[in-house]
Design a binder for these strands. Structure first.
Lengths: 335, 335
DNA sequence: CTGAAAGCGCTTACAG
DNA sequence: CTGAAAGCGCTTACAG
């Protein structure tokens, strides 16, 4: 079933059929339009996407690229939520969503040319790992959670600095004086480094001394059976009353570990996370954390990209979703 | 940059270039092959996907369809894991993954014709909601977690019956006699109905009486503030010592609710989940549950589909991943 | 071993 | 208001 079959059935050229399908109806009589539409309905005709894409040089597909951290790209609830937000906007704008995880950053460049998409969204890329920025000139692309001064593209992120500043301040306001920051390894600049900066500045503001070896602990991947790591944690935590974590998932893993090692939370140590995962309401104690609306982040990224594709104009380059403190049960007030 | 540019540069026809690109080299001299390949490298030429798709009538895209339960299609950790499993296989076979959530089951039929994919994977479809099975005749498709006798397509599932049988048996073996089964609403036949059947048969085997109104509680969506639901739960649980849940996430939500209402788990009531989400190791107490390898399920579904697409032969129709009991801390032994 | 030709299904000037 | 023609970039018999 092609455009020609419809044309034949109606008694016009396939050109005319194409015109009515594409709404170029100023060239077609109402009578013809109606006949064509009726035939299309009747035959259940659907235009061939590939032919259309070839002729238009546009596929109506948007690609999203996930750096494959630690083997499984979707397990992280953060990724699922972003995807949810992106998918709903893309779907309702009649685009399609193609998903791909990549192992090395360089793979992006191949995908860019290789992949016939109208634009793409790149997730959680650390700026300095991305040297050939000029390659992105001709393709509509929006980044999510990338910090990189030279990035002249739309970037949708959260207010990581302010969020972590508030997290640390919450502990300070509750009388805590010896704080620590536990995080996955920190690249510069990145979401994590901005959170660290917020933490640091909160201490500064209260004139509490800070030095990296004393107040920061970086963990590659938490594993309760890896004594090298667990000893580090136990040691780090010993002389502190409150810990900020750069991510809920890490906070929760470590919290469980501490509980199993005789710590009572928040009595012995207070904990603040970051992300406000659903998960954080299900653990004991419920986690005090920084909320960021991840689904909304996905929505905005997708909307921005579609705007770029369709109107070829860039809008605001740096979009920051606000964050807010959610107080639950993992922080104790010190007298 | 097209196939013709390469051809011109090398001094052959575009046909020849196409032939070497597609490995039809029995028709081409080694010398020509080398020259063409060299030119391709040099120019960084990449074939246009849309043109290829049009000429081959094959897009190398696989679509995956998620029924959109409760608004956000990826939030469920189950979905993320399935997607992880599917994506990795698809990627390594040089296919692309297109993702779509649908609101009504009927949307599938439109997608099938509309979407130019080589095949697709349909998730968690309840069989009887799918009346027009003959429509699937001509498209490679594999289902995941669909129970439907008339389904003459590959279906990848878990051994839900045996899993829940083992879950209930675990409680019985620990001396529990008054058991309940709490589940999301149960369709027939479905993953949940099979789990219920396993539960029921486990009771039967031990000659413990069962009746639906007494031993089953269905919950649409758990919400701790909806007293209609919470009262039902409190009431249901009152005269029981052990509860099987049809899903970890529900088990965990209800467990938190019970803890907040003065229940001590597992002292007052024992709980067994289903799924073995990562989450179930992070709650207190850690959840005893039935493990199913969801990522593997995704792997197998993708492999089966690719086999169908490339070799046009169906294989084993019903593939069941095995399940196993994971004993943690949420079940107490009754004396 | 190589190339001229037709075709995949659509879109888009352009002529009438 | 309608249609003949060329083109999007590739593939695939088929002739030589």
């Amino acid at each position: 079933m092609t455009i020609r079959d419809i044309a034949k059935a109606v008694g016009v050229t396939h050109t005319t059929v194409s015109n009515v399908i594409n709404g170029k109806t100023n060239k077609v009589s109402q009578e013809t339009i109606d006949k064509v539409n009726k035939a299309i309905k009747e035959f259940g005709y659907i235009p061939n996407k590939n032919a259309r894409a070839l002729a238009n040089n546009s596929s109506k597909i948007i690609g999203i690229i996930f750096p494959e951290a630690s083997g499984n790209f979707m397990q992280d609830p953060f990724h699922s939520q972003i995807l949810t937000g992106i998918e709903s906007v893309i779907s309702s704008n009649n685009y399609y969503l193609m998903v791909k995880s990549i192992k090395k950053y360089e793979d992006i460049y191949q995908l860019m040319t290789n992949w016939s998409v109208d634009g793409f969204i790149i997730l959680s890329l650390v700026g300095h790992q991305l040297p050939k920025l000029e390659k992105f000139k001709d393709v509509p692309v929006v980044f999510i959670d990338t910090y990189y001064d030279e990035l002249k593209h739309i970037n949708v992120g959260s207010n990581d600095y302010q969020g972590e500043f508030n997290a640390a301040s919450h502990l300070l306001d509750n009388g805590h004086k010896s704080l620590g920051f536990i995080s996955y390894p920190i690249d510069y600049p990145s979401v994590l480094s901005m959170r660290l900066k917020g933490f640091k500045d909160a201490l500064n503001q209260k004139n509490i001394s800070f030095n990296s070896s004393e107040n920061i602990l970086e963990i590659g991947k938490f594993n309760p059976n890896d004594t090298r790591i667990t000893n580090k944690i136990l040691n780090f935590v010993k002389n502190k009353t409150g810990i900020c974590f750069s991510a809920d998932i890490l906070a929760i893993e470590v919290m469980e570990f501490l509980k199993n090692n005789g710590y009572s939370i928040p009595n012995d140590i207070s904990i603040v996370g970051f992300d406000n995962l659903y998960l954080s309401t299900l653990v004991t104690p419920k986690l005090t954390t920084i909320n960021q609306d991840i689904v909304k982040k996905g929505n905005i990224a997708a909307e921005s990209l579609i705007n770029m594709i369709e109107q070829h104009k860039e809008e605001q380059l740096n979009i920051k979703i606000s964050t807010n403190l959610v107080i639950r049960e993992s922080v104790r007030t010190l007298l």
